[in-house]
Design a protein around this nucleic acid. Structure first.
Length: 463
RNA sequence: GACCCCAUCGUCUAGUGGCCUAGGACAUCAGCCUCUCACGUUGAGAACACGGGUUCAAAUCCCGUUGGGGUCGCCA
């Protein structure tokens, strides 16, 4: 049987990091098994679902490179089908009308809580004659769930998990307005879409018991389940906006590469021996549910940064130059693009994010005269200016404007002056980059070219 | 509160009864490299939550405790 997985987010907000990982695992599992991976938008909550959220989710998935098969399924569009199944269950005696009001239900919950008893519907309409129905009240349809025995989930990650049926109440399938509840819609859709493997967050584990009861009532074969542990914030608490429950577009803005985020997310809750750097191709080859851990993990930006730095160094210079030019607001500037690309080898070893990369590349994009930062200005002592003046004269006669020759020239110059190379290089760095740290300065000179280099030195000397 | 899940260095993890004086990675600290900062590289410190069992042998199996998390909606 061919594998079918799905990612089913509700469009009530952006695609957060936990959702992204769930999508990744579903995608990897399907690709690994040569199956199908589908996307379903769970928009049955009309109040909270928004077009913006749908767009953010779709864009986020595309950016992450998690392409889905077939058309997107919108759950709300299937409301008729959900109602139909609920009515079939009703006709088969597997469900019943319940006329309880919201107030009545609230009282029931209050009383149970006060008495220290489990909070659940007491089934008062379960066996009551429909003739008792109060006039003018639109009923909900509830599942007539088993009251004895137990319901067992054979979870691919959590193992065998069971609960006594008397712990579960008769859940609502169809609301009084005729729309389906989440529990019901999920089951009907997963069945109709032929989903064979459900992979979702741990928070759905206890919901699974109830969903299993619907499968049983409908006489359908349930899919296999795998509940993956949640991702927590750096402090171990539930992920909140403050720690990293950001939309994936926020990670994009912060300068993370999709391949780095994929690698990081993969290693959160899944392992393959001592492997850390795992390409997507390898991930597809290796990924399976048996290696998914059962403990929740914490989101760690330091590790993501390290991974991202690795992927940046692996990325080709042209792509990086384009990213930087775009971040600098100069996407179409061919001259800048060429210069950035030439300077990229020295730049990319020094950045953990594209944002940092762009920040470090600013001096290549800056127009003369440069503004030196405080530390750089501090290095422009009278002695340093003297060294620079003499060096400038020596530089003017350089035959080949290439890094190696320029370095040799500078070394010879320093030796002749009986100063350390650093005493030459640092003032040069300040003049050329406006900072005290930068890529190797002779590489910078080559990238900048003779005229720009000499010009920047002159700017400093005459200032 | 009831029910369910989880528990190895600060963090992510390897480990499926002997190969564990517990391995790797990130982070931290120290050294090397060096024109700065990085990259790279070498090394150091750092963990089986606790208490009982089972067994010749337990990080690995069982029970309990503690601690974390999740669910209990006419939300998803």
């Amino acid at each position: 049987m061919s594998i079918v997985t799905r990612f089913a987010p509700s469009p009530t907000g952006f695609l957060h990091i936990g959702g992204a990982r769930t999508a990744l695992f579903n995608w990897l599992y399907a690709r690994h098994h040569g199956g199908t991976y589908r996307l379903r938008i769970e928009d049955t909550d009309r109040q909270r679902s928004t077009k913006e959220a749908i767009d953010a989710i779709v864009e986020g998935l595309k950016w992450l490179g998690l392409d889905w098969d077939g058309e997107i399924v919108f759950q709300f569009a299937r409301a008729q089908r959900h109602a139909e199944v609920a009515r079939e269950l009703l006709a088969a005696g597997k469900a019943y009308y319940c006329y309880c009001s919201a107030e009545e239900l609230d009282q029931m919950r209050e009383a149970a809580r006060a008495a220290g008893k489990p909070v659940r519907y007491d089934g008062r309409w379960r066996d009551r004659d429909p003739k008792d129905a109060p006039a003018g009240v639109k009923p909900v349809i509830r599942l007539k769930a088993p009251t004895t025995g137990e319901t067992i989930v054979h979870d691919k990650v959590q193992g065998e998990v069971k609960v006594a049926n008397d712990q579960l109440d008769d859940m609502i399938l169809l609301r009084s307005d005729g729309t389906p509840t989440y529990m019901h819609a999920v089951v009907v859709d997963d069945h109709d879409m032929g989903i064979t493997q459900v992979i979702r967050g741990d928070d759905h584990l206890t919901n699974t018991f109830r969903q299993l009861q619907i499968y049983q009532a409908a006489g359908w074969e349930a899919p296999s389940f795998a509940h993956i542990p949640l991702i927590h914030g750096a402090d171990g608490a539930k992920l909140s906006k403050r720690h990293g429950a950001l939309g994936v577009e926020a990670y994009r803005e912060m300068g993370y590469l999709p391949e780095a985020l994929r690698n990081y997310l993969l290693r959160l809750g899944w392992g393959h021996g001592d492997d850390e750097i795992i390409s997507t191709e390898q991930a597809i080859q290796w990924f399976d549910l048996d290696a998914v851990g059962r403990a929740p993990s914490r989101f760690d930006f330091a590790k993501l940064d390290n991974l991202n730095g690795h992927y940046i160094r692996e990325t080709d210079d042209a792509r990086l130059a384009r990213e930087v030019a775009e971040r600098l607001g100069r996407a179409g500037d061919a001259t800048l693009l060429a210069r950035l690309q030439a300077g990229m080898p020295g730049l990319k070893a020094r950045a953990k994010t594209l944002k940092e990369l762009a920040e470090n590349a600013k001096f290549y994009a800056a127009a003369r005269p440069l503004t030196l930062d405080d530390k750089a200005r501090g290095q422009m002592t009278p002695e340093a200016r003297g060294v620079l003046t003499a060096l400038r004269a020596a530089l003017a006669g350089a035959a080949n404007w290439v890094a190696a020759d320029l370095e040799a020239l500078a070394r010879g110059f320093a030796e002749a002056k009986a100063v350390k190379l650093g005493q030459v290089a640092q003032p040069l760095r300040a003049a050329l980059t406006g900072a005290t740290t930068s890529p190797p300065i002779f590489e910078v000179m080559q990238v900048l070219g003779r005229d720009e280099t000499l010009g920047r030195i002159d700017d400093c000397l005459t200032a």
